[in-house]
């Protein structure tokens, strides 16, 4: 598989063409005695859309959790040229990488607007500045169908709407690299298509995307390259 070969050689190939956004070297993650990821090495260049594919339970999500710092990791992660400290989610959030996590992790008791505006926290502490900023307005405009739910509590929305809010929150952070973990888990086909359509728009703006996707067909619609993960190993 050409994509896989490219992934193995990592930055060496990519760097010639473009600047690397993310470089992962010898990443390994363990939960207790269980090894979830073993020695993963790959790189993502700026402007790329890379899909992490592979069967469930093979460590795709763990890789992403390790990169952003939500899981304890071994190995090295470089983000836009600087080394990311381990176990520090806030650092990655402030250095241009925002995760839209699996199962969304919204703030259920807060309104949709508050959920989205909190995305701005990664670059400002000023509520007024956040509310008048371009990324926030762009984020709210991503899914016009959300508009009539803006003042509703996020916890009362349907799964599809919650996924949209999660993506909008991620975009309010104005990330240079947006990582999306299993965006279509538990969603109907029509909603999944809508989600991918918007992810496509986001990529078209020139943002780098990393998408964890279980369904390879869906991933291929958008991804410029695939990194395949099997049994906790990048192949």
């Amino acid at each position: 598989m050409p994509g896989a070969a490219q992934a193995q050689e990592g930055a060496a190939v990519g760097a010639a063409a473009r600047r690397p956004a993310l470089r992962v070297e010898h990443l390994s993650i363990k939960y207790g005695d269980v090894v979830a990821v073993h020695d993963a090495t790959f790189a993502v260049d700026e402007g790329e859309c890379v899909a992490l594919v592979g069967p469930n339970g093979n460590g795709k999500s763990s890789i992403v959790m390790g990169i952003v710092g939500l899981a304890v990791r071994g190995g090295r992660v470089d983000l836009f040229g600087s080394e990311a400290p381990a176990r520090n989610v806030n650092w990655t959030a402030r250095h241009g990488l925002t995760l839209v996590p699996e199962r969304r992790h919204l703030y259920p008791a807060l309104t949709v607007l508050d959920n989205v505006v909190l995305g701005c926290y990664s670059w400002t502490r000023n509520l007024r500045k956040a509310r008048t900023s371009a990324p926030y307005e762009r984020a709210l405009a991503l899914f016009p169908e959300l508009e009539r739910h803006f003042r509703q509590r996020a916890g009362t929305l349907s799964g599809g709407q919650q996924q949209m809010v999660a993506i909008a929150r991620g975009m309010a952070a104005d990330p240079r690299l947006l990582a999306v973990d299993e965006p279509c888990l538990g969603l109907a086909e029509a909603v999944s298509k809508r989600v991918y359509q918007v992810l496509g728009e986001i990529h078209a703006e020139g943002r780098t995307l990393v998408i964890v996707e279980e369904d390879p067909r869906r991933a291929l619609q958008l991804a410029t390259r695939q990194v395949e993960v099997r049994n906790g190993v990048v192949v």
Partner: peptide
């Protein structure tokens, strides 16, 4: 008796 966290294991997946 272990109360380990749900882990993305490698052996079970297959």
């Amino acid at each position: 008796g272990a109360t380990g966290t749900a882990a993305a294991g490698t052996g079970d997946a297959t």
